[in-house]
Design a binder for these strands. Structure first.
Length: 560
RNA sequence: GUCCCAAUAGCUCAGCUGGAUAGAGCAACAGCCUUCUAAGCUGUGGGUCGGGGGUUCGAAUCCCUCUUGGGACGCCA
């Protein structure tokens, strides 16, 4: 908000638009350079004066009660906020708005669907699906904070030739009792064995395909097995989602679209988009310099492109979204590029809103994890360990804590989720259990701990802060905190617009750091005339930390 | 082979879309708990921003090129 005041001042003086100047205004790295800066270098040519000259001229003509100092320094005009004024402003705003601080209404009346998580039935919940789940969930929370209505869709992988393979393997080597007892690991074993043997045995591949065709044609026995595998898997996934606190509005998976694909194929045909290539039905995309999109295999079975087209159309018809997001690994970039173009070729102008939000893969020893080779790390085991570790820490540090189990869950899960969310979405992550379980430094538990500290202070000294005023000295001493609080709305907007939860993760780390530094330096509960001002700051920090964590899908316990 | 993505401290990563002296965390070392939770704080050391060109008043950031790593490229999703 103060940035725009500075932008307006400069714009007026230069007879330029506020948008133009706002783009140039930056936040100086050095504290001595103030809170905002306007660089004058670009104006030098146009004005035929040195940047230094322009800056000092400009600085001399600018003034506003919001800023205590506006001065020229080496080609910049530096703005220093009136700390007392800004501090009381931001504290008041947070006190009034509470968790709504940073909210906007830009998305009012618009629906956004988010395709997230989408694990595969009969396979364990992998680390890759963790990324999709937590990133997608956080993006949903961020968009809700911007006023959008968000529909979270778990596009469960419950269909495809893999089930033909699985049924084939179960028929050959499966043991019903064993599978009943320990479903997912047993099914995984069968799946792995199938792939091991298929390398030697061409016939097995054909049998797998045949089973899938029978499944797709409605064969009763195949469907019974499929339903069984699906139900048990969903139950198991449900436990993981509950641990993580993720909820969906729809779990219409791939099978859901089985009866919705004919229509799409016919439509493609009618619009003259289909052509025959090597026995398969495809949409040629040569004009876009892309490989063709495969709609039907030569044996007539459908493919994921067919299903995703049907799903996209169904979602538009059901939810009338303005945007439809897919939080899926970057290895599927080509597929989503093709999907969007085929929708456009079909004449759907809403395809503009169809957006792939890619993320990096979870690698092991620098390589892709493979289900088929059984090389993968299971999420529930990781969460379990994280929770145990949190529990052990509580027993050591705060043994009298009342709701220990719930706090251990929040902290353990918080560590795992935060580790994933804090780094750039697109970067690959080399799997490291050690890093995920870390609780010191730039971690979820560190932020949670800071929040708990603030809560404890407030519990120890209750006070009515409604009319508390902040004095100049307190504002100056706590300035790094106040300045950071001031930036929360910007961080939220940036994160929402760029689908980038890591921005919020970095923000809460920074806020926690400046607060902890203050905590180590200043005795907050000292009974003096400035106590109310300090408590007002602590309250604001508590509110914003909790809200930041919430936007990441992470809990903020009051004690830990 | 073609296309996409990445490369910053010993390790893991930031760097606010081109600005002032490139910053954190971990690890190492030195300190701080008889008063608000040490899952914390303070300090020290650590850099050819992968290499080379270019654009610009100004480049870790934009463009070209090379190197290295990862991914995708028709019947898996």
């Amino acid at each position: 908000m103060y940035k725009s005041i500075a932008a307006e001042l400069v714009a007026e003086a230069l007879h330029k638009s506020t948008e133009e100047t706002a783009k140039l205004i930056e936040r100086p790295k050095q504290l001595q350079h103030g809170d905002y800066a306007f660089p004058c270098f670009a104006l030098a040519k146009e004005k035929r004066k040195s940047p230094q000259h322009i800056a000092s001229e400009l600085a001399a003509n600018l003034s506003n009660p919001a800023f205590s100092v506006i001065e020229a320094m080496g080609g910049y005009v530096n703005f220093t906020l009136n700390k007392e004024h800004a501090a009381s402003q931001v504290l008041q705003t947070i006190q009034q708005q509470q968790v709504a601080y940073g909210s906007t209404t830009v998305g009012q009346g618009e629906v956004v669907t988010i395709d997230l998580s989408s694990p595969n039935i009969a396979k364990p919940f992998s680390m890759g699906h963790l990324r999709s789940t937590v990133i997608g969930n956080s993006i949903g929370l961020l968009l809700e904070k911007q006023g959008y209505q968000v529909v979270r869709i778990n596009h469960v992988g419950d269909w495809g030739t893999q089930f033909g393979k699985l049924i084939c393997a179960y028929e050959k080597w499966g043991d019903e009792a064993k599978v009943r007892r320990n479903t997912i690991p047993e099914l995984l074993k069968l799946y792995i064995r199938y792939h091991e043997e298929a390398v030697q045995n061409e016939q097995l591949v054909q049998e797998g395909r045949d089973w899938f065709r029978r499944l797709e044609q409605g064969d009763a026995y195949a469907n019974k097995l499929w339903r069984w595998f699906r139900d048990v898997s969903m139950e198991e996934f449900g436990r993981v989602y509950e641990l993580m606190g993720v909820k969906f509005d729809s779990d219409a998976g791939e099978a859901f679209y089985n009866n919705k694909m004919d229509r799409v194929v016919k439509e493609l045909e009618q619009k003259g988009l289909l052509s025959l290539s090597e026995g398969a039905q495809v949409v040629q995309l040569d004009a876009y310099n892309l490989p063709p999109s495969l709609i039907k295999k030569k044996d007539g079975a459908t493919l994921y492109a067919t299903r995703d087209l049907a799903a996209a159309i169904y979602r538009k018809e059901s939810y009338n979204f303005s945007r439809s997001l897919y939080v899926v690994g970057h290895e599927q970039s080509l597929h989503f590029q093709q999907l969007k173009i085929v929708l456009t070729k079909m004449g759907y102008d809403w395809s503009d809103g169809v957006t792939h939000i890619p993320f990096g893969m979870v690698l092991q020893d620098g390589k892709k994890m493979s289900t088929r080779k059984g090389k993968l790390v299971l999420l529930d085991k990781v969460l379990e360990q994280a929770i145990q570790l949190a529990d052990a820490n509580i027993s050591k540090k705060n043994p009298s804590l009342i709701n220990k189990a719930e706090v251990a869950r929040q902290v353990g899960v918080g560590a795992v989720l935060f580790h994933d969310l804090k780094q750039e979405r697109i970067h690959d992550i080399d799997f490291s259990l050690e890093d995920m379980l870390r609780v010191e430094g730039e971690t979820g538990p560190y932020v949670q701990y800071t929040h708990a500290r603030a809560c404890t202070l407030l519990a120890k000294r209750e006070m009515d802060l409604a009319n508390s005023e902040i004095d100049k000295d307190t504002a100056a001493e706590a300035w790094p905190i106040l300045s950071q609080l001031l930036q929360f709305p910007e961080a939220v907007t940036y994160a929402a617009v760029n689908y980038d939860p890591s921005r919020i993760a970095k923000y809460v780390i920074d806020l926690a750091q400046v607060f902890n530094s203050y905590y180590g330096r200043v005795r907050i509960l000292n009974e003096d005339e400035k106590l109310a001002a300090r408590l007002a700051i602590v309250t604001a920090v508590k509110t914003v930390l909790a809200e930041g964590l919430r936007l990441l899908g992470i809990g903020a316990p009051k004690q830990m």
